[in-house]
């Protein structure tokens, strides 16, 4: 059945990052909640998809963890892993910085993209990872996103993008900026083809990512407490010469100001997405037809 979804035969698939996710749980059995200070057992934290059971604080998640928590088990097939970071400006120390990020994160760029299912509903998914140079958007991020969206348009299935980003990848200069336009153009075609796009902002989503695909969803969603903004808090404070309120630029603040459709707790994200996918499929069933039962 999987094969039917790929009009062009793809010979190779990468190993699902799910398999490695368990190894990446931080060492040590205890974690202290950054908000309420409660001591949490790692096992307890995992059970709550890395949210605090006491105050609801959302810990940061890696891309493999996110894919693991969002997609049906074993359904993820990674694409475009063979795209590697360039150095168009011959920027000082950039290749070294990339190499360090690779070693630290175990990823080769700030985004992982591919195909999978949620409750049986097929979708293309791209998930950013903050550990890789602050989730900044360079050419590989833009290219993986554009290819992901194009495949989704071709195959007629939805796209979900989880964002977490410090914004543009400064070391790629104008190439980084232009990825905003490139991904937007691909999403324009996806929209024109009548296909669904869901953007999910996670903590933090800023700069050029906010000013492009993070805000272009048919549904713009966010996790509780996520900081989402175009300009950084410190830049704004120095511009207006006053302190901003605590809740400024949080997901709840954006919801209140009409920029988001919903703030969804991480524990509810998968069923929420499943419901949205069902509402956008032909008869509320995976692949638009009833499976045998």
């Amino acid at each position: 059945m999987l094969k039917d979804l790929f009009p062009k035969k793809r010979k190779f698939a990468t190993i699902s990052p799910n398999q490695g996710a368990k190894d990446r749980v931080p060492e040590g059995l205890m974690n202290k909640c950054k908000r309420c200070g409660e001591i949490l057992l790692s096992r307890e934290l995992e059970k709550n998809v890395k949210t605090c059971p006491h105050c609801g604080y959302h810990f940061s998640m890696t891309a493999p963890e996110r894919i693991d928590a969002t997609l049906d088990e074993g359904s993820f097939v990674e694409f475009d892993a063979h795209l590697l970071t360039g150095d168009p400006l011959s920027f000082p120390d950039y290749p070294e910085k990339v190499q360090k990020a690779r070693e630290m994160s175990g990823l080769d760029e700030a985004i992982v993209s591919g195909y999978g299912t949620i409750a049986g509903f097929p979708l293309y998914i791209a998930v950013m990872d903050f550990r890789f140079i602050m989730g900044s958007m360079g050419s590989v991020v833009g290219e993986r996103l554009a290819r992901t969206v194009e495949r989704a348009t071709d195959d007629g299935v939805p796209v979900v993008i989880f964002t977490v980003s410090g914004g543009a990848r400064m070391q790629e200069g104008i190439f980084s900026l232009m990825q905003m336009a490139k991904v937007s153009a691909a999403l324009r075609r996806h929209a024109d083809a009548g296909r669904l796009y869901i953007a999910v902002c996670t903590n933090p989503t800023t700069g050029g990512v906010t000013a492009s695909f993070a805000m272009q969803g048919d549904l713009n969603l966010a996790e509780p407490g996520a900081m989402i903004g175009f300009a950084g808090r410190r830049i704004i404070e120095s511009t207006i010469r006053q302190q901003l309120p605590e809740e400024f630029q949080t997901a709840e603040f954006l919801l209140e100001h009409g920029m988001l459709d919903e703030v969804v707790h991480r524990k509810d994200m998968k069923p929420y997405l499943a419901t949205v996918l069902a509402m956008h499929s032909k008869r509320g069933e995976p692949n638009g037809h009833r499976t045998a039962f």
Binding site: I15, E143, E172
Partner: peptide, 15 residues
């Protein structure tokens, strides 16, 4: 628009 290297061999690193 974009500057990246595309590994030409059929079998990428992690595949």
């Amino acid at each position: 628009i974009g500057n990246y290297r595309e590994m030409t061999e059929e079998l990428p690193k992690h595949s």
